[in-house]
Design a protein around this nucleic acid. Sequence first.
RNA 1: GGGCGGUUAGCUCAGUUGGUAGAGCACCGGCUUUACACGCCGGCUGUCACAGGUUCGAGCCCUGUACCGCCCACCA
Length: 858
Amino acid sequence: MTVPEKPVLEGLEAKWTARWEADGTYRFDRSRPRDEVYAIDTPPPTVSGSLHVGHVFSYTHTDVIARFQRMRGMAVFYPMGWDDNGLPTERRVQNYYGVRCDPSLPYDHAFEPPDKPGKQPISVSRPNFIELCVRLTVEDEKVFEHLWRYLGLSIDWSMTYATIAKPAQRISQLMFLRLLQRNLAYQVEAPTLWDVDFKTAVAQAELEDREQPGAYHRLQFHKPGGGTVEIETTRPELLPACVALVAHPDDERYKPLFGTDVVTPIFGARVPVKAHPLADPEKGSGIAMICTFGDVTDVVWWRELKLPVRAIIQPNGTLGAVPWGAPGWESIDAPRAQVAYDQLAGLSAKKAQTAIAELLKQSGDLRGDTRPITHNVKFYEKGDRPLEIVTSRQWFIKTLDFREQLLERGRELQWHPSYMRGRYESWVNGLNGDWCISRQRFFGVPFPVWYPLRADGSIDYEHQLYPDESRLPIDPSTDLPDGYSAAQRGQPNGFIGDPDIMDTWATSSVSPQIVTGWERDPALFARTFPMDLRPQAHDIIRTWLFSTVLRSHLENQSLPWKHAAISGWVLDPDRKKMSKSKGNVVTPLANLEEYGSDGVRYWAARGGPGVDTAFDVGQMKVGRRLAMKVLNASKFALTGGVAAGNVTHPLDRSMLLQLAALVDDATESLNEYEYTRVLDRTEAFFWSFCDNYLELVKSRRYGDMGEAGAASANRALQASLSVLLRLFAPYLPFVTEEVWSWSHDGSIHGAPWPSSAELAGIAGIAGTDTTSAGCLAAAIDVLGEVRRTKSEAKRPLKAMISRAVVRDTPERLAQLEGARADVAAAANIHALLFEPADAFAVSVEFAEVEAVTADPPA
RNA sequence: GGGCGGUUAGCUCAGUUGGUAGAGCACCGGCUUUACACGCCGGCUGUCACAGGUUCGAGCCCUGUACCGCCCACCA
């Protein structure tokens, strides 16, 4: 037993992180059977800058659960991943090194980036670019790891993965090829959501609505026999791409027009008038123009009404050239159409809108003034301009066919909090297409596919070439398909690699397979899959959670994990979500250093599952104070005398009974992921323990009332402290470890979770001990009354009471009897008398001379 | 348009199956007390958003409303 004279919190993080690493405290024991393993599918944070306090918040929640499970005897499988795929990394690398990726370039083994980025970006091959991404992210990952260790996450740091590293690439490609074999992945040329700045396809899950100013333009179409039909549109620049008008089948106003043609203004294209139930008679004039493609509704109409394509928006967002009069672009006045259109070609959609409005005004086809509105427009979540819909060749994973099965998986999964399932269900119910997983970017997992080139050099998409699984991972831009030589790349009768990469969610959605050793380490896989827990925030339910469920459903015919613990967001004091883009992010390391990791973890752990929580340094201060209190109370509890034998004193037994009830409640709650409640209850108990029990027992444990009473007190103090430390250990890993080390050799984080049975054994207590049960509560009531009286009399707390009378029911007085001497000593009462009465009351008489010490009552 | 969560002390939030409204912070007052002044003791603070209903009894259950936040939707 070595208790420091003056225990401090400073330096505990450095001391214990080093010790845990040296001792392998959190090393996963892979020899344990599946039912003794608790496996966590850690979210790999995006490595493109710095961690913020939101990460600290949610990762702490996971760590509390991990530590609880470990103490319950589970082998905790708790790896850490880094998500270095994707656009954020790509942009960062471009700026950091001053390079640009050109996938057509060959790999340069000797390439070194300049010390400082030049003005003109240097073009590099995709493998070179990826090397630079890896080089930069390795540095970022070191910073992240340092912060995680400092925070005290009980991760097994021998098990880290990066989503761009070869093992993860291999799994991504392997799972993709397996889907291809089963026709669950496919390639098709079709209208796709498209970001015109990034020039890539994006998925439905990456959409967000943004309120934008817009304007209704009322345009007139001409009936061949004379007369006009008026439509309203917010996108008049798509008029050249108009392929039909559409109204509701029951709309009497337009019924006569169904089956007839009308002519577009200015461009003179004949387009049919169609009926479709999606057309809303209430909207605009009740009849709409269908363009290829203005929005997703256009795609639905185009597909269901079997309309032709007139595409004008190019991948870069400008209007492309159109040969009016040529097949597909027929016009009743092609020269006029051409003259008008040539004024639009090359303009961005936004500028084209202004230009065409002017043309329509001149021709008289713009009816009335435009009506400004604000409406929701779909954006790529990382994009700056509205999405367009562009026809392109993309890879998809089938999802629509599995909607019902995915809903069933959602019901099978245990959600914490349970209402988060609703988010998942509404997303699955709202799916409107298969999942587009190809991106026209560079930094990510490439598709392991090549295409033969025909004699004329055109690409033969029908006869795709795949690598043998044993070769994975491959990069088709540098690796060769079997039977071809490097010289044949890009040549007629040769081959070409698929230029695209997988969406970042397509690779992170296989995180369970990556970490559990699917198709790599069968013994590990058998012990860890399906995993136990997916912790994540609620904003990525539709992306990461959904896609992970989908992939495991398709590949493993199971859920990837049993539980999903959904954490909330950290809000700034104005109740806004903290995020980098809003510039209100707090860098967490400074908080960790100021309040201690335990203090910050305390704040984080008070945010319950799914609950958005305000950033609050006040709570961190409270957490730090609690840690300090643990140090000092422990010092007191451990520096007593002999602690032999059983706990015999009623007050001690009473305290231990209450503690036993707390332990049962804590165990049950933590099993249900209710970590907030457990911290709350444990803290409340601990504070009362310090303020009341320690004060009550102080005199006796110093031996003022004999050896037996002291031994009981000391035994109770040690037992209760041991239990309290272990209850706090998941939350305050540093201070509890420090205190534990004063009297133990091993780590508290490997100690068994406390049980009420353990306490019963020490104290010889049982639930039927009703007299002891109420003893502590009764003693606290009396102590409180005396304290209040002294405070109101503005006397010192040590002021002596010559005579105090407690009036209470006989039952309560019987309970109090056991603590009579303790109460008298703690309150400094010379003569403590009991009188039976109906209601509780305490009357006191102050002693004339305050220096007199109390005689120990007989 | 559909759905979810929230509304409790000045602030941040607890409140198990319905049974006398709680904690911390803040504020006020007191205390050199041998675990802790990074401390201790005490005090003040409420139309539990609103309106109905069920019940002996509602912060909690039911119906409706308002506001805040979020999710989803084929928002010409």
